[in-house]
């Protein structure tokens, strides 16, 4: 009967080989993990473009207020030009509706003035303003993926 339990050998010595091996293994695993997590976000998705056309500027005489329901954007026209304000509440993404003081969100009671500034409720940021552009043929289009500073109004010739 020979009793022998090997328990103090190998990696417990923390020799160079062990350190290198485990270091490399951890590094490799982090790489695999990072690559895998990157997988969840695609380069593009098959979804509607954020850009959409709104027609010619003649459709928006001064004083117009229009809402594009399927795009959730308000278009206003005043002396200083056209501007587009998002209808998406900055609190939790409900859709605001116009009211006497500006905009009112039905979900948690956020209120905004007519420029989209928060005047009440839990909303953390003012409503977003979007870029309006003109195509060669004069058609206007809004890029709802591109926020512009509040107060940006566009005058088109």
């Amino acid at each position: 009967m020979i009793k022998k339990t090997r328990n103090t050998e190998g990696v417990s010595r923390r020799d160079f080989l062990g350190l290198a091996a485990f270091g490399a293994a951890i590094l490799g695993s982090i790489g695999v993990l990072a690559g895998s997590l990157r997988f969840v976000k695609a380069d593009v998705y098959s979804e509607e473009s954020k850009k959409f056309k709104i027609g010619k500027k003649e459709n928006f005489p001064i004083g117009t207020t229009r809402k594009f329901d399927d795009k959730n954007v308000f278009i206003f026209s005043d002396d200083n030009g056209l501007f587009a304000i998002s209808a998406i509440c900055t609190h939790l993404g409900c859709i605001v509706s116009p009211s006497e003081f500006g905009f009112q969100c039905p979900c948690h009671g956020s209120r905004y003035d007519e420029n989209g500034n928060v005047i009440g409720g839990p909303a953390p940021r003012p409503l977003e303003w979007y870029e309006i552009n003109q195509e060669v043929d004069g058609t206007l289009f809004i890029d709802a993926g591109k926020a512009v500073p509040q107060g940006t109004k566009y005058l088109f010739a």
């Binding site: 690559g35 895998s36 990157r38 997988f39 976000k41 695609a42 380069d43 593009v44």
Partner: peptide, 9 residues
């Protein structure tokens, strides 16, 4: 085509 490391996965 459009997922990073998608083909590999």
């Amino acid at each position: 085509f459009v997922v990073i490391s998608g083909k590999l996965m």
